[in-house]
């Protein structure tokens, strides 16, 4: 993305072409500048930037996952409740042993267990989605709507609708800590984004994802095992939701039935604003991250400016619709 951008600038194509190609980045810079002016530069100060990073990190994992799925022309509505279930499962294995209301009272599990349990849960749900879409031939919208409800039910049954609290400090610090001024969460996102970037850009699998999203029939004719690749993409996304859930329970120090609710819509909105076309076959990791940050500064900026939270939803909705309106024109297949 960055190399691409610099290259484009250097070439004779000029700034106009560069701006046309990177609408998502332009949107982000314009919004950030507006916010900067309105807050008299306060929003550019480190504490603000740091808060934004912490607030958006978990969502970034979900966006990376669903971003890849959308590249293959799919969709995933189960994210919110899967992350909620994962957060509950991971928290339940990280509760302090002397906490009386713990799900496993008196048990002191090793610190890696919540991660393993959480990530496996996420991966399992992703795998299940993938099998339904690829081999069951269910429309992704319906398949993931079903798993969404299953994840919801599983979470309520597992936690008996109670809060899973009193998480160990050793667990919390992984999500809440910092390396110097930089929050751990942001570092995890950088690592995950790098891995997804590598996958999409440098492996055969990534190329296959773009091909499947761009023209599933031609992908099959070209010898791509479309079904297998779809299972892989949903499973990989599930693993990312698993990480998101673990980090979320660590950051909050608890999990309950409301944790991560609506995250699927935030993630889908973010990648859409970031230029990942619902028609499939288009999108970059840079776009996904820019999309998350763009929605982040919209949220953060409106809160900072004291906009009523109900109006925030309204404004956010309009911004997403405008973005999609333009992208649909930009990426329409001639």
């Amino acid at each position: 993305m960055a190399a691409n951008a610099v290259g484009a600038l250097a070439r004779k194509k000029g700034i106009a072409a560069f701006l046309g190609k990177n609408t998502n980045l332009v949107t982000f810079v314009v919004l950030a500048t507006i916010l900067g002016v309105m807050t008299r530069g306060r929003s550019f100060e480190w504490p603000s930037v740091r808060n934004l990073m912490i607030a958006e990190s978990v969502r970034a994992f979900a966006a990376l996952g669903v971003g890849m799925i959308i590249i293959t022309r799919g969709i995933d509505l189960s994210i919110g409740y899967v992350v909620c279930l994962v957060a509950s499962v991971s928290a339940s294995f990280a509760q302090t042993p002397d906490y009386m209301a713990a799900l496993y009272p008196g048990m002191d599990f090793p610190i890696y267990l919540p991660f393993i349990a959480g990530i496996l849960t996420g991966g399992l749900f992703g795998f299940f989605n993938g099998v339904l879409v690829a081999y069951g031939k269910l429309p992704a919208f319906i398949a993931t709507l079903g798993t969404m409800s299953i994840a919801r039910g599983a979470q309520l049954i597992y936690t008996k609708a109670a809060v899973v609290g009193s998480v160990k400090d050793a667990y919390k610090v992984l999500a809440q800590g910092s390396v110097g001024p930089i929050p751990n969460l942001a570092l995890y996102v950088v690592v995950a984004a790098a891995i997804v970037w590598f996958l999409l850009r440098h492996t055969r699998r990534g190329t296959n994802f773009y091909a499947i999203g761009g023209n599933p029939v031609a992908a099959r004719v070209s010898g791509i095992n479309v079904e297998k690749e779809l299972v892989v993409v949903y499973t990989f996304a599930g693993l990312l939701y698993g990480i998101a859930g673990c980090l979320l329970s660590g950051r909050l120090g608890l999990a309950n039935a409301l944790t991560a609710n609506g995250m699927e819509l935030d993630a889908i909105a973010a990648v859409t604003v970031g230029g990942i076309s619902q028609a499939g076959g288009v999108g970059t990791v840079g776009g996904m991250i820019i999309g998350v940050l763009t929605l982040g500064i919209i949220n953060y900026g409106m809160t900072y400016l004291g906009v009523d939270s109900y109006y925030q939803l309204l404004v956010k909705g309009f911004i997403i619709l405008v973005a999609v309106y333009f992208y649909i024109r930009k990426y329409s297949q001639r």
Binding site: T207, N208, G214, N215, A218, V221, S222, I224, V282, Q333
Partner: peptide
Amino acid sequence: GSGIFPLLSVTENTAVASL
């Protein structure tokens, strides 16, 4: 309908079956 990947480049369209 079943040949080209319209949004992908010439390179990607050429290489897709032999990656």
